[in-house]
């Protein structure tokens, strides 16, 4: 498959995931489950952009690691802050006074 065809397919996947992700969020499931679903879709979309648009696999390892840490860190933070919002609130409340 040509690189251009891979980019086209990645774009199509991104569009489908964007529309599908909205459907997950509007479901009546538990808040943490919704956060996991939405975060998973977010992570897949970010990885598709990294691999096929940004061509991160060709980049210097430091650039690759930093960008991937940002991309993987964000969905994880979404889940953690949804599941442990009370803890974060009490911790930051104590810090902020």
């Amino acid at each position: 498959m040509s690189p251009e065809r891979k980019i086209d397919l990645a774009w199509l996947m991104l569009v489908l995931l964007s529309v599908g992700g909205a459907g997950i969020a509007r479901s009546d499931a538990n808040a943490v489950l919704v956060a996991v679903g939405v975060s998973l879709v977010m992570a897949i979309k970010l990885r598709l952009v990294c691999n096929y648009f940004l061509e991160l696999h060709e980049a210097h390892p430091r650039i690759r690691r930093a960008v991937l840490a940002f991309c993987h860190g964000m969905p994880i933070l979404v889940i953690l802050t949804t599941a442990f919002g009370d803890t974060l609130s009490s911790l930051t409340g104590a810090l902020l006074g």
Partner: peptide, 22 residues
């Protein structure tokens, strides 16, 4: 330029679910 644009795109992919979905 392409790198900048894709990173800006990726940041939107993070903002979108935070405000419009979750």
């Amino acid at each position: 330029f392409a790198c900048y644009w894709h990173i800006t795109d990726m940041i939107w992919l993070m903002i979108f679910p935070l405000f419009y979905l979750l």
